[in-house]
Design a protein around this nucleic acid. Structure first.
Lengths: 145, 145
DNA sequence: CTTTTAAGTCTACAAATGTAAACTATAGAT
DNA sequence: ATCTATAGTTTACATTTGTAGACTTAAAAG
């Protein structure tokens, strides 16, 4: 079966961040936490919760009331996937510089940095000085019309 | 005046990639190119073109007909900005690993790699072993209810 | 046991997005 | 000068998203 590959919206992502942090949450907790932080009413939280379930990002223990909601995907995985998807729609030539920029403005742990450096040192060996732009399919570059 | 900070949608981004590549385009070219690549009709292309103008991402030379559309933002800038925005909605703790992942699966030029490494070497000096998670505002961690 | 509170479900509604047809007017063809 | 193809403009319509009220029902309070 084909994965429907539904994505989280910004608002849904906000909810998920709390769920990820707490592991298991009741709507009660969500409502309490989010109603302060955001300008969301309990209704809105409930709707978001429903949609996240429909999309398969949340499940709950069968309780009829005060059920515990939990994520079906880890925050790390979701983060990686989302970032990958974003990068994939971009021009291969622009991604490098953009990553330089992002990394520059991101706080990283020593561990991450070490990992990145070793990974990059490795890539450096086979890297070329330029990469092809994938902005337009090759065959359609005849614009003479 | 406050920047309206409108964002490009996926479809709009597709159009922009062609515009960025060509620098200046007529709708004619876009229609020709995109109708093959995507399953878009001329109408759809025109709509997207209109919206991109309304959002301020495209302008055109005043021609009444066969006008030339051009971008108001460079592809590099748009790419960087979009990536930054994406990263900003994510948990600071997850961004590092996600970046490791993305960089692993991304083709980079020697130049980019060198830049990244030197930047990282620098960051390494002041980096700590762990960073605070920004998933939930500190004050709202009392979930005792 | 009755009342109240609130969790979960349904319905609502505007704005944004994906997708495109209909209409208008003009540059180029005849 | 008239016709035709089509660039640009309007209108359209289903889905998704942001946001939330209304309704139902069970748990907690009294």
């Amino acid at each position: 079966m084909i994965k429907k590959e539904s994505t989280m919206t910004i608002s849904e992502w906000e909810i998920m961040r709390i769920v990820w942090t707490l592991g298991e949450v009741t709507s009660h907790q969500l409502i309490h936490i989010m109603s302060k932080k955001q300008l969301w009413t309990p209704s809105t939280i409930k709707t978001l919760l429903s949609r996240l379930q429909k999309k398969g990002f949340l499940i709950h223990n069968g309780a009829v009331r005060d059920r515990l909601y939990s994520p079906t995907i880890s925050e790390h995985d979701a983060t990686s996937q989302t970032l990958s998807q974003t990068v994939q729609m971009m021009c291969t030539k622009c991604v490098g510089p953009a990553l330089v920029n992002v990394i520059n403005e991101t706080t990283l742990t020593k561990r991450d940095i070490t990992k990145l450096i070793s990974m990059l040192e490795n890539k450096k060996i086979t890297a070329s000085t330029s990469i092809a732009c994938n902005c337009m399919p090759k065959n359609q570059e005849d614009l003479s019309l």
